[in-house]
Amino acid sequence: MTLMERRHLLYNSHSCQLFLYREEIRKLVPHLAMALQIPTWLDTFHVQKVLRKFQNNESTEISGISITSAAAKGDNYASEIYRVAVDLQRLQEDRKIQEKIPLIVKMALQHGILKEMIADVGFFETELSMISVVLPRIKKILAALTTAQIAPYCLYTQYEEPVHIFMEDLVCKGFRMAVRQKGMDLNHSLLAMQSLALFHASSVALRGKYGAARCVKTSLTLEFSLILIIGRLGL
């Protein structure tokens, strides 16, 4: 079996798994509505530790923090997403700087049958790898072609329990999620397809840069991510 045949087989296998799990999840969604419960570990101490490491500055101190749900009921069922607004101060060249940092924290489900179903396919680990490893490489490759921001920057990832990721909150830059029931207009649909084309072409460039042996999995990850993105956009 050739490399392309193996990739096609795995691609179709992922598509089939995604469809089957999506149908099972849809059956469970009506029973998932519940009040927001902020995990105990998502506190000032942990957020401050993440920011100190990201900024490489031990003087960073949080003076205020607000944590709310980042998704309306029914909009997200494969993870838990929180919007974290942080007020902090830090020293920079002997000057005290105050700033506000908007963050998104996305956490894998902690219990229940959905946690087991999603863990079996590896959705969340794929997403963490995509955001923290693949997208920064793509950004470097595309730097000569476009200045557009293709994704939020990643501050922190944790693959051990509780599995989660800290990302930039793009809402503060004017981005917003499309209303899936309404879809998108022509201009936004064309923009989405152009972005998907950049992602797909970048996987080929990554393979050329890092070698076939190291990038087969990366390329497949990109292609599987396209399935998820297209499904999310309703295209």
Rank of each mutant, 00 (worst) to 15 (best):
I62K: 12
G211A: 11
V216I: 15
L186D: 04
N12G: 00
K173S: 06
V204D: 14
M130N: 06
G183D: 09
K49W: 08
K73C: 14
S15P: 00
L10N: 12
S129V: 03
V50E: 04
D120K: 10
Q158G: 06
L155W: 11
L222N: 10
I101E: 01
Q48H: 06
K182Y: 04
N57E: 00
S129K: 06
H8W: 04
F54T: 09
T157G: 03
A35I: 14
S59P: 10
R180L: 14
S15R: 04
S79R: 00
V171F: 15
N187M: 05
R52V: 02
V216F: 14
K96L: 05
A192T: 05
V179Q: 13
T221G: 06
D94V: 14
D185E: 05
S69L: 02
L42D: 08
Q110V: 09
I67D: 01
L135F: 06
R83H: 02
V29P: 09
S203L: 04
A192C: 07
I38S: 13
A192L: 12
L128E: 05
Q158P: 03
I227M: 12
S63Q: 11
K115M: 13
Y153Q: 04
S59E: 14
Q17P: 00
F199P: 14
S63P: 03
Y159G: 01
S15T: 03
F54W: 05
E161S: 09
R22V: 06
Q17W: 04
D94E: 15
L51W: 03
N12E: 09
A72G: 08
D87M: 09
L196W: 11
Q181M: 15
M193T: 07
S195K: 15
E5P: 08
V133N: 01
N76C: 13
L233T: 15
L88G: 05
G174M: 09
L28P: 00
Q110L: 06
G122Q: 07
M1Q: 14
I138C: 04
R180A: 15
K96T: 03
E24F: 01
W41K: 00
E223N: 13
T2E: 10
E99D: 11
C154K: 08
N56V: 12
M1V: 11
A197G: 08
G122V: 10
H8N: 07
Q37R: 03
A178Y: 10
K96S: 00
R6F: 06
I141Y: 06
L226D: 12
T44H: 10
L145K: 13
H8A: 03
V121Y: 01
L222E: 09
F199R: 12
Q181H: 15
Q89M: 01
E160L: 09
P39C: 10
W41A: 01
L32D: 11
H46F: 07
V179N: 13
V133C: 00
L228R: 15
L9T: 12
E23L: 06
L226M: 15
R90V: 10
E80I: 14
G231L: 07
L91C: 07
I141D: 06
L235R: 02
N187W: 03
L128R: 07
I227N: 13
G183I: 08
K73N: 14
F175R: 05
E168M: 08
L20C: 13
T218L: 07
D169A: 05
